[in-house]
Simulated scan of single mutants.
Amino acid sequence: MNSLIMVIIENVGLIAFAISGAVVAAKKDMDLFGINLMALVTATGGGLIRDIIIDRIPPVMFVNPSLTIITLITANIAFVVMYLKKPMPKGITPVYDKLLFWLDTLGLAAFTVDGAFAGIYSDYSDNLFLVAFLGVITGIGGGLIRDVLADKVPYVLVKHVYAIACIAGAAVTVVLWKFTGSELISSLFGFSTIVLLRFLAMHFEWNLPTVHMHE
Results as ranks from 00 to 15, higher is better:
M1Q: 12
V153L: 14
L184R: 06
E215H: 12
S186K: 05
I164Y: 13
E10Y: 12
I53Y: 06
V148G: 11
T42H: 00
E215Q: 12
V12I: 15
I120Q: 03
L184M: 12
V156D: 03
R198L: 06
Y121W: 13
T74E: 01
P59C: 09
D114A: 13
I52W: 12
F17W: 04
I35E: 08
Y155M: 08
V7T: 14
I137S: 02
M202R: 10
T71E: 00
E10D: 15
L188F: 12
L134N: 01
I52N: 08
H212E: 14
D55P: 04
G13I: 00
A171N: 11
V60Y: 13
G45Y: 07
L103E: 06
N76R: 05
N64C: 11
Y83I: 07
M6D: 12
L67C: 12
K98V: 14
T44N: 05
G107K: 06
M1D: 14
E205W: 12
T138C: 04
T180C: 06
L48T: 15
G21D: 00
V175G: 08
Y155K: 03
D104A: 02
T105K: 05
P89V: 10
T93P: 13
I92N: 07
F17C: 01
K86Y: 15
A22D: 00
A110R: 00
G107V: 00
S20Y: 08
F191C: 07
T93M: 14
A78P: 01
D29N: 15
M30F: 14
V174A: 05
A110I: 01
D114L: 15
V63Y: 03
G119W: 02
R146Y: 03
L149D: 01
L197M: 07
D123Y: 10
I120R: 05
I5F: 12
A109F: 05
W177C: 14
V23G: 06
K85F: 10
G21E: 00
V24E: 05
D55L: 09
P94T: 06
G190W: 13
M82T: 04
I70R: 03
S66E: 13
S122T: 07
A171E: 09
V113E: 09
F191I: 10
T105N: 02
M30E: 10
G115Y: 04
A18W: 03
M88Q: 15
L200C: 02
I9A: 10
S186Y: 04
V113R: 02
P89A: 10
W177M: 13
D31R: 07
I8N: 15
G143V: 08
G45N: 01
L40I: 09
F191W: 11
G143T: 08
I69W: 11
